[in-house]
Nucleic acid binder design. Structure first.
Lengths: 136, 136
DNA sequence: CTTGACTCCGTACTTAAGTACGGAAGTAAG
DNA sequence: CTTACTTCCGTACTTAAGTACGGAGTCAAG
């Protein structure tokens, strides 16, 4: 007996997450996404949780986290030992703050460039490179 | 005749930029870094500009820009036509701002997680995933 | 109950960003 | 001048993150 909404297929999941079906399968192989049981010889069904997870992966990736790092982030969610989780989170937090600082200086540089570019004609010597000098 | 400081070798450049020598050569092949002339049958010499450029590339990469995107950013610096430059800069600026927004919500989520994790024992259900729901 | 679309699975291919390799040529110290 | 390290250059290998492919099984509409 089938409850009314017992999840969606991999194709629907992929489409909803704006991702290739193969990518979903790839994430499963990597252990980033749980592979739901398939009811005896049938097709796997996915739920909103899975969609959220895929979206999260893509979002974190856009921020420059690798899949390995994303998998660490996800372990936090999955309720690993609290101490480990905390350590991990603190490290990520530092990385995130460093990225934020870098991005802010790029933002400043870019908006200045845009402003100046509207004003001065030709010969743009933008402050972009200068804005990133002081990094490790 | 050699002036006292007429630049450094590729090895020194690479070391200063904390990068593999091969990476320098790779960037040259991709046109991200100019290849200085080699004085008749001798070795190429690099200057501070080149170092700055390599550092910039690495910084931008850490923020999630691809080498292709970095090369666009660098074209801005190189004084392309002002209008193009401005367009490019505006697009990048939007991308940068989107990244900033995402990063800020991750930062919030992570710091909340760290805080809670110190307080509650066990069973961490972190707000990380939730924090990234609202993205395209 | 057939037909067309979708799923499953393993394997193979692709792209981006390097890294490594090997031989010839340049260079710097003894 | 020899020896040991670099550079130079082309070509080949590696890793991460997918993408594509092909054959077999499943599902649902007509």
């Amino acid at each position: 007996m089938k409850t009314l909404s017992d999840g969606f297929s991999i194709g629907v999941l992929a489409e909803a997450a704006r991702v290739n079906v193969e990518t979903i399968r790839f994430y499963q192989r990597k252990g980033l996404l749980p592979e739901p049981e398939r009811p005896r010889g049938s097709i796997r069904r996915y739920a909103d949780d899975d969609l959220a997870r895929v979206c999260f992966i893509k979002s974190a990736q856009r921020l420059g986290f690798s899949l390995d790092e994303v998998s660490e982030l996800l372990k936090l969610e999955d309720g690993a030992h609290c101490d480990e989780a905390r350590d991990l989170a603190e490290h990520k937090l530092q990385a995130v703050r460093a990225k934020l600082a870098d991005l802010r200086s790029i933002e400043t540089a870019l908006s200045q460039l845009v402003a100046r570019c509207g004003a001065t004609r030709g010969a743009v010597t933008c402050p972009l490179i200068a804005s990133l000098q002081g990094n490790t």
